[in-house]
Amino acid sequence: MRHPRFVIPLLLLTLIGCAVEESPVQTAAPDLPPSLFLTSPPANARSVAEVKESAALGDEVVIAGQLVGNRQIFVEGAATFILGDHSIEACHPEEGCDTPWDACCTPITERRALSATIQVVGEDGKPLRTSLKGRGALSELKQVVVVGKVSQRSEGVFVVDASGIFVAGGDS
């Protein structure tokens, strides 16, 4: 049997409860490379599916796709996003998906097979600690072309370290 504690919190606290926030890693948000966002589309772009099929680790690639295929396209707090192949269809409002870009009507395994991870890394080879969302007009469902190098390549894993990003319809 517990004894009542004679510290009386407010009823609201009782009902709502209080979540303990995780203490964030203390890192100042770094700047993105100035030349990251391209003003014209690079030549010789290939689709995500084609590039994933043929590119090897360390290859320079020009990869065209759409920000689609996952509920969370951008990693909050890091320069990483998921690029989907053009063949992944965004959801129509009447299909009842949480977001249009999660493409929930396409099986997740299929979506993931047609997706690549794009990241902008620092000197340490790790993604920069700043979100790309909203930068250079990047947002969900945008068509983009990424220039970069394949940094991770294994069964199901395909990561490109981007050196240039062109956002169609962007105003960079």
């Binding site: 995780e22 203490s23 890693v25 969370q72 990693v75 395994t109 690549a116 991870t117 990241q119 199901g156």
Partner: peptide, 25 residues
Amino acid sequence: TLVPGEADITDAEILAAQRLDLELA
């Protein structure tokens, strides 16, 4: 369990985004 100050949820999210094959949230 992360060590506060050494890793945070962003590190875990980066991993989940890089390992698309594992279909992690």
